[in-house]
Simulated assay, not measured.
Amino acid sequence: MNTPRTNLAAQVTDPATSAVRHLYLHVPFCPSICPYCDFHVLTRRAGQVEAYLKRLREEAAEIARTYRVDLQTVYLGGGTPSFLREAEMAEVVDIVRSAFGWGAQENTLEVNPGTVSPERARQWRELGFDRASVGVQSLHDPTLKFLGRQHDARSAREAVEQLLAQEFRVSGDLITAVAGQPLDGDVRGLVELGVEHVSAYTLTIESGTPFARRGVTVREEDEREGFSRTAQLLGELGFERYEISNYARSGGHSRHNLAYWTNQFYLGLGPGAAGHYPAPPGREVAGQRVLSERRTNPHLNGWLAGQPGESDLITPEEYATDALFMGLRLTRGVDLRDLSRRSGLDVAARYAGVIEMQTRRGALEFDGRALRATEAGQWVLNDVIRAFLEA
């Protein structure tokens, strides 16, 4: 049963509650590396997946001994999780189920269209996945070729149809602001396939990627056109924008991603995975209590060797700014009374100057309880967040 949007606020986790209800599991292996990708990904080599699965089981057992877990959502991301062979995928699911159980509300698998077949879709469904996030990116073959994708438009359509035939809830990813891209056709074509959710991201050139080394650039006018035109089209087609880059039919929002945007706790398993964990009771840093801990695992070789990752202990003020950073991406914004209760700070008073300045600027609106980014503010949200951090 889909959770009504009006009940989403009730899912927010209080920092004083030790249960962790969400799990992100990173599968770093890909058939090929896209030239715009800056995630921790690699093509598989002999013995790597076997070593990965062995270490993954050990890590899951370690975390299960440390935290109380009551899973509501599971998300396998990457990389290309759907690139795993059938027995490997079954083992990943067994590792999660053995350590933590399975998500009671939603279990998502990231899918590359080139890895889908009716048989594989059926296996994924039988293993317990009920939602698929499909990396369509475009339904225009020249655009896909420019992006370095290994699938074509036909195989993307077939992948979505095969997943829908197995009763998956399907989300489709689109990349916008690509020169020459027929954006209207991409958006309309994806919706016509029957997806319930669309994630539309502007092409971003990250340093160190093949695109950056080749000198590929994205024009600001293409960014703005892609940003606004996507929102207009999806609105006309019955999709609600509930986050800057995410749109859904009624009840089709990503419950797992809402955990990130509402600053809830989540486990991070696998190389390069990030997690947000409850802090041990009574923990302090420089005389301030610690509400939570953010940890990021090392990349594959370090992770396989059991090396510790990066760790940040989160104080009340950091917790509040994290919640604002993520929550202002949501169209419903951030409930400052609720955030004050969770952080122990009077957030509206603490940031009154920033709120007043950004409201006058037209970037934010505040009704005394909910703080939201305006349409203009969504475009300059990084600047808005920087003002809170500098305060």
Rank of each mutant, 00 (worst) to 15 (best):
D184E: 15
H151P: 01
F100G: 05
E106L: 07
D141T: 04
A179G: 00
L164H: 06
N112P: 04
T73D: 00
H151E: 05
G185I: 03
E119H: 15
A90C: 00
G101P: 01
L174V: 01
P113F: 00
T115P: 06
V96Y: 05
V170M: 14
R120N: 05
Q150E: 01
R85Y: 03
E119C: 09
E106V: 00
P182L: 08
A64R: 13
V69Q: 11
H140P: 06
A177N: 06
F129L: 12
E167H: 14
M89N: 14
Q181H: 14
A156T: 03
S138Q: 07
F100Y: 08
L71E: 06
R125F: 08
T108K: 03
Y75H: 15
E161N: 07
A179I: 05
W124P: 01
G114S: 15
D184H: 12
F100A: 03
Q150V: 10
L163C: 09
H151W: 03
R68V: 14
Q72C: 06
E119Y: 14
Q181A: 13
G77D: 09
Q162Y: 10
N112W: 01
L139Y: 08
D141P: 00
G172D: 00
A153N: 03
R125G: 02
S98A: 15
A90V: 07
G128T: 08
G135S: 10
E106T: 07
I95Y: 12
R157Y: 03
A159Y: 04
L147P: 00
L71C: 08
S133I: 14
T73E: 00
D186N: 13
R125A: 11
S138R: 08
R157P: 02
T176G: 00
R97D: 10
T143L: 03
R154T: 06
Q137H: 15
F129M: 13
S171Q: 09
V116I: 10
V74W: 02
V96C: 07
D184Y: 08
D152F: 01
Y75G: 11
L144W: 06
F83V: 06
Q181C: 06
R157N: 05
R85L: 10
Q166P: 04
S155D: 02
H151F: 04
S117V: 02
I63N: 11
E126A: 14
Q181W: 13
T143V: 01
E119T: 14
